[in-house]
Amino acid sequence: MDVPYTTKPRSDTGLYNAKLGIWLFLASEVMLFGALFSSYILLRVNALEGTWPHGLLNIPIGTFNTAVLISSSITVVMAWASLKLGKFNHFKIYQGLTILCALAFMVIKSVEYKDKFTHYEVWFNDHEKKSIRGHIEVPGEEGNPWFMTHKKLAERKIETIKIHPDPKVTVASGKEAHGGAEAHDGHGDHPPVQEIKVADIKRLSAFVPAHSTYFAIYFTLTALHALHVMGGALVMAYLWGPGSKMWKTDPERFTNRIEVSGLFWHFVDLVWIFLFPVLYLL
């Protein structure tokens, strides 16, 4: 039995079925991301004054990744347009570029995540002393440790650690903040390395979800978005490779598949268009 309405529009909806399906799915996706955005708003407006961090993400990298995703949005629509013009070779190129953009986005995002997992904030038992952000050296660990916590330090009976505090940098909106990823650029003065007694540490955390509400919602939103990027890339890779055989047997249906996967991809781009300013810049 043939699947009905893969190319012909249904008379009642005026659409081929997959198109109606993807739009219903995207509507549900709007609510999924909407719920998380509303959590972000609630967390942020109710945060105690001065506790919402600014400038902890790398803006140049984030901007570049935005451009990567926007580029993939034009290539995906060009892939569809190429099929409409009957140019299968062009389709292969544009669809391939889209998949490469998706991979580039994921690689860049992974580098950003890694930076966060190896970057620390230390709070002290002495409340007068401000917390320090920077990279740490822990005895028995080579280089920058991942996911270190004060509990792990205590369990290993480590007595002192070294911290390389981040230089002071000026971040978006003219606010001055200690450190952040922008500090990696090497701007500003590098404060001297400090030795810290573990006994003086109240809390030590990498910039992981447990660090603060900001990072909890940052990782929730960006990881869910990254899952969408991966899912989209898998589907597009299938349609670029084995799935493209359908072009020979049923070109119109194949073109519709590309349109539908493209609609999903544009949605993923749309979500990022909001995530980028909200998480990186504001």
């Binding site: 198109k19 739009w23 034009i74 609609l263 544009h266 949605f267």
Partner: peptide, 19 residues
């Protein structure tokens, strides 16, 4: 993006209803 890449400026009524 929604209007032109996703063709929403010239779509069918069913999609507008959903949206």
């Amino acid at each position: 993006v929604a209007g032109f890449f996703m063709h929403l400026t010239t779509e069918k009524k069913t999609i507008y209803t959903i949206l």
